[in-house]
Amino acid sequence: MTLPRWLLAGLLLCSGLQAAELRVCQHDASRYAYRLELIRLILERTTATHGELHVAAAHGVDPPQERCLAQLRAGMVDLAYVPPNAERLRDLRMIPFDLHAGMLGYRLLLIHREDAPSFARVQSLDDLRLLRGGFGSQWSDFPLFALNRLPVVGSSHPENLLAMLTERRFDYYHRALHEAWEEVGDHPERHPELMIEPGLALVYPLPVYFAFNRAEPELRQRFEEGLSLIQADGSFRELFLRHFGEQLRRSQLSQRRLLILQSDLPEGLPAADSRFWLQP
């Protein structure tokens, strides 16, 4: 006898053959390996209290950030990770915990090798304003250039920025510590004309929060509990340093001139706890 489709689906669900899945918007493992591993660690630590939940298999290419957030609002995905702003804090359920512990706010400059003497003379933001940066025009921190009166060339195709820097369309391209090493520092053969500037770093707050649809308060609560657990048992620190510890060491932030940028973040957000990796 052939069972009705609705009855078969119910039997499969009750028998546990269909595991619950968490739909994550940004699932590119090459780009988001750390964040995806962090999600899996949280789910593992909370299985006993909240049940089995697994990250759904990736399908297709990651959408742009704003489309991803639209999918989250519509309930098409369950989780995203994005920098906060006033609109996102109002419309979504966000956990005010920086997944990168403040690290993304420390930015190294990628420059043309021949321009190293010019950057060695930069002592202040006023000096940097004599040079021109390049950046992704759709990225959430792009408006900081205008806010800090820094000349910039914006590109809606950020995959072209390294080539544009090589062609001298602008003077520098600032990247997070791990990005700078992955894109240029560890692979000089890819862009032999470029280098990581050795004496400067830009600094501004750039937290990344877990974001959930407002219709899923239980999921947000589960992640809050999981974050508390992995901070308390040291596994968050272990995961972070396993992914970024070597790049942090090589960046030698304590020996760089730090240029502090004004930020446009909403007021009242908690400061990231960077004490376990940021050496004074």
Rank of each mutant, 00 (worst) to 15 (best):
L3T: 14
L3N: 10
R5A: 12
W6G: 02
L8P: 07
A9W: 15
L11A: 09
L12H: 12
Q18Y: 09
C25Y: 03
Q26L: 14
H27V: 14
D28F: 11
D28N: 15
D28W: 10
L36T: 14
L41I: 14
E44C: 12
R45T: 15
R45V: 13
T47P: 02
A48H: 09
A48S: 13
E52Q: 13
E52I: 14
A57G: 11
A57T: 13
H59I: 15
P64G: 03
C68K: 11
L69A: 07
Q71R: 15
M76L: 08
V77P: 08
Y81S: 10
N85I: 00
A86M: 06
E87M: 05
D91E: 10
L92S: 06
I95K: 03
D98T: 04
A101K: 03
M103W: 02
Y106W: 09
E114S: 07
E114R: 07
E114D: 08
D115C: 02
A116E: 12
F119D: 04
A120C: 02
V122F: 00
D126K: 10
D126N: 02
D127K: 02
L128P: 00
L130I: 06
L131S: 00
L131W: 02
R132W: 00
G133W: 00
G136K: 01
Q138G: 05
D141A: 04
F142E: 01
L144M: 05
L144E: 02
L147H: 07
L147T: 00
N148V: 00
R149T: 00
R149E: 04
E159T: 06
L161F: 01
L161I: 03
A163Q: 10
M164G: 11
R168L: 03
R168N: 14
F170P: 04
F170E: 06
H174W: 02
H178F: 01
E179C: 01
E179T: 01
E183A: 00
G185K: 02
D186E: 05
P188T: 06
E189H: 14
E189F: 09
H191P: 01
L194W: 06
I196K: 05
E197L: 08
V203C: 08
V203G: 03
Y204A: 09
P205M: 04
V208K: 08
V208C: 11
Y209M: 07
A211L: 10
A211T: 07
N213I: 15
R214E: 08
A215S: 12
E216I: 12
L219Q: 08
R220G: 14
E224I: 04
E224L: 08
E225H: 09
L227D: 12
L227N: 12
Q231C: 15
F236P: 15
F236C: 12
R237K: 15
L239D: 10
L241V: 08
R242A: 15
G245R: 14
E246Y: 15
E246C: 15
E246S: 14
Q247C: 13
L248D: 02
R249F: 06
R250P: 13
S251D: 05
Q252V: 05
Q252T: 07
R257V: 03
R257T: 05
L258T: 03
L259W: 07
I260Q: 10
L261S: 01
E267Y: 05
L269D: 06
P270W: 01
A272S: 11
L278A: 09
Q279D: 12
